[in-house]
Write a protein that binds this DNA or RNA. Structure first.
Length: 471
RNA sequence: GCCCCCAUCGUUCAGUGGCCUAGGACACCUGCCUUUCACGCAGGCAACACGGGUUCGAAUCCCGUUGGGGGUGCCA
């Protein structure tokens, strides 16, 4: 299904860092372009001068790049205000729009007086308001009829034109608003498929009406773009993910040590699994090959960090060791653990890779090697060292023997293992756990003997003695 | 209030009239492997929101109810 005439766009407003919901929209557009051989456009919708932050555009580039999302063309709406204004002027000239000098308070007061929460009442439709201070341009919406469209994900959707108020297309500052800019650009850029979040469904009739009005007499058969509104990604409260409430900036995930491939793969499972019924965790090209906008689920999906973590762990384990080390290197300085020596980490990396779920927790597996043993909980301590006289006595003998025998043995993993296990056989008990607890302060962790030789012999003996004394 | 959308295990995806005594994955629980943990393996728990139709037959089609979400800006 290669169709190079397909043109899709991701159009973020640079009003905050890219969050996972937007990233998902970008991803689905990109997937569709990849699948069809179409063109991917990045369009920065920065018509709101008050909220747009130009410096965020670079961050959006970075985040998209991190996810492996590429684009073929890029535009900024702030470069195109003249064109939108010309379109609005044309509407004015043709009587499709009119000027309005109602203040927002007036509009609201009249709506309340009418007893509904609805918006503008068409007060200025025939007042012939002159351009000037505090004057906006409103688009005259039809009083009757319906505006309908077919959504690839939601099916046929209809809106009663009577429910559409005359909305503002040019601010009193002279700057055009979202709807015109959007309609104009989609037409001008030849966008064939509009793939975005469900929160934009309600703007479709307005944009379609505008688009229709922009078409000249000889362009009446220009098709509308095909729409596909993606289900929202929600939090545990089933509310739309918001930058304010939820910790969802793509950059934060990168900083926490999520691999872009894992994030991308996980995002793709939300709203639709693999068509062929195969594994969820797949190489991106396999996912692209079977990508179809028609297959996307219409119901909102919860962003499940636990499942993302699982994907991430799988992706981490699948990395060649060198790649894992390279990926983990930026995370070696951990707030609780301190800075881990790169060579040491290199030696221990294989053990860490098998266990870590997020790259940023890599150093925590080595905390006892670069620093002191952890302070174990009393519960863990008793569970391992014993909570009966008899068990405690056995543990004491184990530690005594190990301390004695490692005093002058070769400082190698094999030798240490032989001693610890040898004591176990003599005493007919398992010896790894008490030694592990004494050395690390934890009940679980990476294999014991290899990291053990990274410590000084005196340090090991001291920790064993401390534990012995504490029994 | 008004407009739009949604509704299968805790979560997510599969299921598009009979193959469903509803399947996979994550999570959770049990066991095996392993002198730790993790991985792996074998099991287990667990869902068609409700009520009406249509049909020989409905998770699948229709209507309603309930519940949830989105929108309702001189934001996008």
């Amino acid at each position: 299904m290669t169709d190079s005439s397909i043109r899709v766009r991701f159009s973020p407003a640079p009003t905050g860092y890219l969050h996972v919901g937007s990233a998902r929209s970008a991803l689905f557009n990109w997937m569709y372009a990849q699948r069809t051989g179409g063109t991917m456009i990045l369009r920065i919708e920065d018509t709101d001068a008050d909220r747009s932050q130009p410096e965020l555009i670079e961050a959006i580039h970075d985040n998209l790049g991190w996810l492996g999302i590429t684009w073929d063309e890029e535009y900024r709406q702030s470069d195109r205000f003249d064109q939108y204004r010309a379109a609005a002027q044309d509407f004015l000239d043709r009587g499709l729009a009119y000027r309005c000098d109602c203040s927002q308070d007036d509009v609201k007061a009249r709506a309340e007086a009418r007893g509904d929460q609805g918006g503008y009442d068409g007060h200025c439709r025939d007042r012939n308001v002159e351009a000037g201070e505090g004057v906006v341009v409103r688009f005259r919406t039809p009083d009757d009829g319906i505006t309908a469209y077919d959504d690839l994900i939601r099916g046929h959707v209809e809106f009663d034109n009577a429910t559409l108020e005359d909305f503002v297309i040019v601010r009193s500052s002279g700057v055009p608003l979202f709807h015109v800019a959007n309609a104009y650009d989609d037409l001008d850029m030849g966008i064939t498929h509009v793939v975005r979040g469900e929160d934009l469904v309600n703007t479709v009739p307005r944009v379609l009406l505008l688009r229709q009005a922009m078409l000249g007499p000889d362009q009446q058969d220009t098709p509308n773009p095909v729409f596909a509104h993606l289900p929202l990604i929600v939090n545990e409260q089933r509310k739309k993910l918001s930058k304010r409430r939820d910790d969802v900036s793509v950059g934060d995930y990168a900083d926490k040590g999520y691999l872009p491939g894992a994030m991308r793969n996980y995002l793709l499972t939300l709203g639709g699994g693999p068509r062929d019924g195969g594994e969820e965790i797949r190489p991106i090209d396999e996912l692209v090959a079977q990508f179809d906008l028609n297959d996307i689920n219409a119901a909102p999906a919860f962003f499940d960090i636990k499942k993302l973590d699982h994907f991430n762990a799988e992706y981490i384990r699948a990395l060649p060791l060198d790649d894992f080390v390279a990926a983990a290197t930026p995370f070696l300085d951990h707030p609780d653990v301190g800075d881990i020596d790169a060579d040491l980490f290199g030696r221990m990396a294989g053990f860490v890779q098998e266990r870590v779920r997020r790259l940023d927790e890599s150093p925590t597996f080595l905390d006892w090697v670069v620093g002191d043993a952890r302070e174990p909980s009393e519960k863990d301590w008793k569970k391992v060292m014993g909570n009966s006289e008899e068990k405690l006595a056995t543990t004491a003998r184990v530690l005594d023997l190990v301390i004695e025998r490692i005093a002058d043995c070769p400082w190698e993993p094999e030798a240490l293992e032989a001693i610890v296990f040898g004591v176990g056989e003599e005493l007919e008990t398992k010896t790894q756990m008490p030694v592990r607890m004494a050395l690390t302060g934890a009940r679980s962790g990476i294999p014991l003997f290899e990291p053990m030789v990274e410590l000084e012999r005196e340090v090991v003996i001291q920790r064993l003695r401390d534990a012995r004394a504490k029994l």
